[in-house]
Simulated assay, not measured.
Amino acid sequence: MKVQGTIIAALSCSSQQAGVYTMEDVERARIIADLLTPYFYALRAAEQAQRSAIVEAVARALEVGLRLGALKLTEALEQERQRIGMDLHDQTLADLTRLARRIDRLSRFTEVTPKALEPVARSLQQSMQDLRHIIEQARPSVLQLFGLAQAIEDHLDRSTRESGAAIRRELRDETGDALEHLEPTVSVALFRIAQEAINNAVRHAAPGTVMVRLKVADGRLVIEISDDGSGPARMYKRIDGGIDNMRTRALLIPARLSITPWRDNHGTLVRVVLPLAPELPAGGELPREERNEGSDR
């Protein structure tokens, strides 16, 4: 794998059987390597840019002799590193997993036509675009322009539509103007939690319906993402990393998060509660009495 004449990686294929690969197999491997090279180059560039930014920021803090500022900066950089890691999991890793499965299916065919490689190339381009957004540390454009409710609705519509399944979707916003007063970092965290919950429902639960409700009750913002799919026990056993990211985002705001069965122990209800005035007790999880509380839909 070369970029501008420099080798950045190598694609290795091996077999315990001698002579199993033909020259056509070698050519297909070269095509796959050429498709993957720009993406690996972008990943390495992102890591180098992040390291350079950390070194430059710490150097600036040391130059002005602000020890307290340097400590706060280190904290902020660590939080940003965690945020980027969670974003890579929520977006890029999921896309790469689908891409790897598609390449694995293609490798089983004796012939791979250019037409069959077109979806792979398109998926790579989309992953590279998503990665560029993460590198630039840009907030989701719909969230920035139109607010939290519209951003969640846009993602809900796009996710269910692109799944190819007949999934009914609905978003109910009963918050009035409460969302307009949220800090930008809080809005981003809430959006990412809702995004992960919607993605998990669509990709893993085989639901017929996915619903999102935003409301204000007793001085608290409540966001509920519910589906009538396979339920949390079955759906979430393969995606612990995604749950951890959701809980971490909730703790950092701070908000409380619960993941429970929905109606009559069917489906899943993800519930996020954020205090708009007094702060909630620490811990990031709902108490048992609220954990068992269902949606009133």
Results as ranks from 00 to 15, higher is better:
Val222Asp: 01
Leu156Ala: 04
Glu75Trp: 08
Ala277Val: 14
Glu290Gln: 15
Ala59Cys: 08
Glu75Gln: 12
Met211Lys: 14
Gln48Phe: 06
Arg168Asp: 08
Gln126Phe: 05
Glu80Asn: 10
Phe40Asp: 08
Ile198Cys: 04
Gly241Phe: 06
Val3Pro: 05
Leu66Arg: 13
Val58Ser: 02
Leu77Thr: 09
Arg122His: 09
His266Asn: 12
Ala205Arg: 04
Thr97Tyr: 09
Arg44Gly: 15
Arg291Ser: 11
Arg102Asp: 15
Glu170Trp: 04
Ile198Trp: 04
Gly176Leu: 05
Ile54Thr: 03
Gly294Ile: 08
Asp240Lys: 14
His155Ser: 11
Arg102Met: 15
His181Trp: 07
Val26Asn: 03
Val64Arg: 14
Glu47Leu: 06
Ile134Asn: 07
Leu106Phe: 06
Arg220Thr: 01
Lys72Pro: 00
Pro140Ala: 01
Leu276Gly: 09
Val202Pro: 13
Lys115Cys: 02
Thr37Ile: 09
Leu11His: 12
Arg169Met: 01
Arg122Cys: 04
Gln16Asp: 12
Glu183Phe: 07
Ser15Leu: 03
Arg105Ile: 06
Leu221Thr: 04
Glu80Gln: 15
Tyr39Val: 00
Gln137Trp: 07
Ala70Met: 13
Val58Thr: 06
Ile84Trp: 05
Ala201Gln: 06
Val20Glu: 03
Leu71Trp: 13
Ala250Ile: 01
Arg220Leu: 01
Thr74Val: 13
Gly65Ile: 11
Arg168Gln: 11
Ala149Thr: 03
Met23Ile: 00
Gln150Tyr: 07
Ser295Gly: 14
Gln125Lys: 08
Thr185Phe: 03
Leu257Glu: 08
Asn292Ser: 14
Glu224Asp: 12
Asp177Met: 02
Ser107Tyr: 01
Arg192Asp: 15
Met1Asn: 09
Pro281Ile: 00
Val273Met: 07
Asp104Ser: 12
Ser12Trp: 08
Leu88Tyr: 11
Gln17Trp: 11
Val3Gly: 02
Phe146Ile: 00
Ala149Gly: 05
Ile32Val: 15
Leu280Glu: 13
Ala205Trp: 02
Arg158Leu: 13
His181Asp: 10
Arg291Asn: 05
Pro275Glu: 06
Ala201Gly: 12
Asp130His: 12
Pro281Trp: 00
Ala201Trp: 04
Val120Thr: 12
Leu77Arg: 07
Ile193Tyr: 07
Ser295Ala: 13
Gly241Met: 08
Asp240Thr: 10
Ala59Leu: 10
Leu276Trp: 10
Ile8Lys: 09
Ile259Cys: 08
Ala178Asp: 04
Ser107Phe: 00
Val142Trp: 03
Pro184Tyr: 00
Arg44Trp: 13
Gly176Ile: 02
Met23Trp: 01
Leu35Gly: 04
Gln137Pro: 00
Ile8Arg: 09
